[in-house]
């Protein structure tokens, strides 16, 4: 890796080094440290819903309309936990391409490191993250949304390693309305159904 120019805050698949390595080849070999960080005024949600283009098929051969991924959204009463890692210019370009459905936002001012052992040069780097501000809206009145199993496992395992038992949605959601009912007490994980998912 050439000179690092920024820190990326990862909260979803970017919690996993092997997943980062898929976008930034050589990431695993470079032994870039991953450091836990919280963002004040942001919360982790499952609101990044994108159309299912055949990636997800349930055991009963039904396919949901959309797939939900992790997202971070502004919420003044909450804080979002994730990790940061350094990237160079090429890395940012590659991540932009990968997270093209998300927008890159600067969260330098609200980030707090959870460890004291931070390389000194990190203090001058901006902290960026990817947040989906305009998710996909399904065509029908009621959309079914699912979560990819590997993605869900990734989030769960990363949560344990970050000393946080994240409340996870169940096996998968069948119907968005019903999902919401079933996970009504998971407000920190799944937000209430929002008019924006309906036409």
């Amino acid at each position: 890796m050439t000179k690092p120019i920024a820190l990326i805050f990862g909260y979803g698949s970017l919690l996993a080094p092997h997943s980062i390595n898929r976008t930034i080849p050589g990431f695993l070999e470079s032994n870039t440290p991953l450091v836990p960080v919280t963002l004040a005024g942001w919360k982790r949600t499952w609101t990044a819903v994108y159309p299912n283009e055949g990636e997800l098929l349930h055991a009963d051969n039904t396919a949901p309309d959309g797939i939900a991924y992790m997202n971070v959204e502004p919420d003044s009463s909450d804080e979002a936990l994730g990790i940061v890692f350094t990237v160079d210019e090429e890395g940012i370009a590659a991540l932009d391409k990968r997270e093209k459905l998300y927008d890159r936002v600067d969260v330098t001012t609200v980030a707090t490191f959870l460890t004291n052992q931070i390389p000194p040069h990190w203090k001058s780097l901006p902290i960026l993250t990817y947040s989906a501000t305009s998710p996909w809206k399904p065509d029908g009145a009621i959309a079914t949304v699912g979560i990819r199993r590997d993605y869900r496992e990734l989030i769960r395992e990363a949560g344990i390693l970050l000393d946080r038992e994240w409340k996870m949605p169940g096996r998968f959601e069948r119907d968005y309305e019903c999902v919401n009912e079933r996970f009504a007490n998971f407000r920190d994980v799944i937000p209430p159904v929002d008019a924006r998912y309906k036409k």
Partner: peptide, 21 residues
């Protein structure tokens, strides 16, 4: 038990982190 490496399947790095813990 919580950090048992065999409980981490998604990523080899996760497993190593768990081992360290």
């Amino acid at each position: 038990k919580r950090y048992h490496p065999d409980k981490f399947h998604v990523d080899n790095e996760f497993r190593e982190m768990a081992e360290r813990k």
